[in-house]
Amino acid sequence: MSQSEQQAYYVPHDSRWPVFGVPGMVLLAAGFSGYLNGAGWGMPLMVVGAIITLIMTVMWFRDVIHESVAGKYNTQVDISFRQGMAWFIFSEVMFFGAFFGALFYARVFSIPWLGGEDPATSRFLWDSVTLSWPTAGPGEMFRALEFTPMGAWALPTINTLILLTSGVTLTIAHHAIKENHRKKVIWGLAATVALGALFMSVQIYEYIYAYTDLNLRLDTGIYGSVFFMLTGFHGVHVTIGAIALLVILFRVIRGHFTPDNHFGFEAAAWYWHFVDVVWLLLYVVVYLL
């Protein structure tokens, strides 16, 4: 590649995938909305939209991988990829920040206000209302909803150790790819994906335990809503990250990366470490405090 080609910015050919994917995402969102509101057409429409969106995602990433392997990307494109991934992770920080903010507001402001700690608001409350976190809200007085909050021991602590270990195995694989130790990269990535799958298995068991033994459900007032919202969305991100790392593992096996050119690996690693950090915050704020 000449000097001028190195400095030129690669412009891909016209892609059909944005046009193909937009209807899929619209159908997915509309179907999900209909399903939540009890519409019979909601689930079928959501499934069709999910299938179209999945096809679009897989095929679009396939094209990007083919372009990368063909050597069409240069330093300019690499910088754009890094900036794009950084902004994507920033958007994810804001995504979880909104949910942590909802938890903070409920615990620090709403519950004390509704519990009558503020004399200015206590006269507007029902008689004998006493609230303290964790709570299902004032409505529990009338429907006698009793639940046990999820403690930090033992399942969440086990999952924390699993996810922290996966961060270590991924870091080992990252150093190995820089040193061109391909077998070590493969083993490190395989261990990380396996630990991610184990994490999700433990979380599924935790949810079953919450529903059957603790009476902790999605409709258990503010506590249940916030608990499943935060841990559930994090579980979705763990699943996405594990799938991304699995794809990277297959690419490593096929010899796609070099010590100097492996941003696909780095992007997936950034995402996984972000997921680790979010879980540590979840563990402290949701389970310990």
Rank of each mutant, 00 (worst) to 15 (best):
Q3T: 12
Y9C: 05
P12M: 12
P12E: 13
H13G: 15
S15I: 05
F20T: 07
G21F: 06
G21K: 14
V22I: 13
V22R: 09
P23W: 08
L27G: 08
A30C: 14
A30S: 13
L36I: 11
A39Q: 15
G40F: 00
W41K: 12
P44D: 09
P44S: 07
M46I: 07
M46R: 06
M46N: 03
V47A: 13
A50V: 03
T53C: 01
I55D: 01
M56P: 00
T57W: 06
F61K: 04
F61H: 08
I65Q: 08
Y73D: 04
T75K: 13
T75D: 13
Q76L: 07
F81E: 08
W87K: 13
F90S: 12
F90M: 15
E92I: 05
V93N: 09
M94G: 09
F100N: 10
F100E: 10
G101Y: 09
L103M: 13
Y105V: 15
V108W: 06
F109Q: 12
I111D: 08
P112F: 01
P112L: 02
W113K: 14
L114P: 09
L114Y: 05
P119H: 07
R123M: 08
W126L: 09
S128M: 04
V129H: 06
L131P: 02
T135Y: 01
G137Q: 04
G137L: 06
G139W: 02
E140S: 13
M141G: 03
R143A: 11
A144P: 02
M150N: 14
M150V: 11
M150G: 02
L155C: 09
N159M: 13
I162L: 10
L163Q: 11
L163G: 10
L164F: 04
T165M: 12
G167V: 04
V168Q: 14
V168R: 11
H174G: 12
K178D: 06
R182A: 00
K183W: 01
I186A: 00
W187C: 05
G188H: 11
V193Y: 00
A197S: 03
L198M: 13
F199C: 07
M200V: 14
I204E: 03
I208H: 05
R217F: 03
R217E: 03
L218E: 15
G221R: 10
Y223P: 12
Y223N: 10
Y223T: 11
G224W: 05
G232I: 03
G232T: 00
F233P: 07
H234K: 10
G235C: 00
G235L: 03
G235W: 02
H237L: 11
T239M: 15
G241D: 10
A242Y: 03
A242S: 15
V247Y: 04
L249P: 14
L249N: 15
R254S: 02
H256K: 09
T258W: 04
D260Q: 12
H262I: 04
A268Y: 02
A269V: 03
A269S: 15
Y271D: 02
Y271R: 06
W272S: 08
F274G: 11
F274H: 09
F274R: 11
V275M: 13
V277G: 03
W279S: 02
L282R: 04
V285Y: 05
V286I: 12
L288Y: 00
